[in-house]
Every structure is written in structure tokens, then in C-alpha cells.
Amino acid sequence: MRDHENPDAPDDDAPLDPAEMLALAERQQRAVGLSYAKPVAWMFLVWGVAWMAGFLLLWSGYAEGNPWFTIPIAVAGVAFGALIVVSIVFSAIVGARIGRGVRGASDFSGAVYGISWSLSGAAFAALGIGLIQNGLSTELASLYFPSAYALMAGIMYLAGAALWQVRSQLVLGILLLLIASVAPFFGAPTNNLVMAVGGGGGFLIAAAWFWWQLRRQENR
């Protein structure tokens, strides 16, 4: 045992007093928790920007939408798609990194959760396409798709809250369900504005709240 051979070794082998040892253990466990939580805050931020900017662009694609300026709907659609794709790629990379170097019992939950995003995304898309093929108008489709994805995201955040016992995801999930179900009542294209402010705003507030919590924990 090295600490017996060289009791004066000025390394981290030496015990500290009880209060310091307890603080050390708690600080270390918080650091582990933070390494899991920080990427989630980044995800909220990226999704907040994508929803806010993307849905504002869509809203600006309609003459009866944004009263200040109108952009071609094709441009708005492509820009919206690009923002969402970038966010998906970012989330997939960051999400896969969260659990790096850790294997075992939680693998199943993590994999099921990750795949559930893609599966439910595909299912909601297929439903929309099926409805369009059966005569769903463009205007109604523009009500369906934003709400469908907000519903999906809301349900996924509720599942995430249950899996990892994270309250912020619970709040975000409920907010997204609320926005998704309320938005269609505003009609198109105002539903996009509701999505931008409610959904995008919700993500940004969640990101800010998360950062604030993390800062508080780091400084403890």
C-alpha cells in the first residue's frame, strides 16, 4: 500500500477532514450528473432556436401571416426543413455522446428512447401523408404537421422525464402538448406563430432554466 510506504506523499491519497471528504464526494457526484445534464441544455437551446426561427419563417411564408414582410413559402419550407434536420443531427450526435463510456442495464432504456424519436417521427409523417392522399387540403396539412410533431416531442419529453426523473422535461412535455393541441384553433398560418412563440419559447426558457440550475450546482 503506497500510502503506508510514503505517508507524506502530497498526492490525493491523503484523507481530509470529514466535512471536506463529504463535500468531495458530493462534488464528484454532482460533476457526474452535470456531465449528463449539460448536453441536454444544449439540445434545448438548439431546438428552441430551430422552432422559433423555423416557425416564424413559415408564418412569414403566408400573405395573411407576418404583417411586416412575406417571404416565398418554398424558401420558408426549405429553411424550416434545414433547421429541423440540423437540430436532429445535433441531437443525435450529442445524445449518443451523453452515455459514452457507460454500458450496462441502462443501454436498453437509452436505445429504446433514441429509436422512439425516429419511429414516432416516421409514424406521424406517414399518417399525414395518408391523410393528404385521402384529400386533406394543404391548409389543413399545415395545421396537422406542426401539431403532430409538437405532440410527438411532448410525449417523448414526458417519457424522458419518467425515465431519468427530470422535472424540466416534464414541464417541457406538458407545455408542448398544450401548444400542440391549442395551435390548430388559431387556424393557419397563425398556428405557426403559436408554435414559434409557445414551442420555441418553451424550449428557450427550458434551456435558460437548465443553465441557471447547472450554474447554481457548479458554484455550490
Binding site: D11, D12, D13, L24, Q28, V32, V102, G104, S106
Partner: peptide
Amino acid sequence: AAARLRITATLGALPVGD
């Protein structure tokens, strides 16, 4: 010992089975 406490705390922060 500080180092072993930190190791134990880190591994202890993992869910059982990981």
C-alpha cells in the same frame, strides 16, 4: 482517501447494473 473516495463516488453515481 481523497482519490478513492472520488472514484467510488463517480462509480456510485451510475445506476446499478451500469
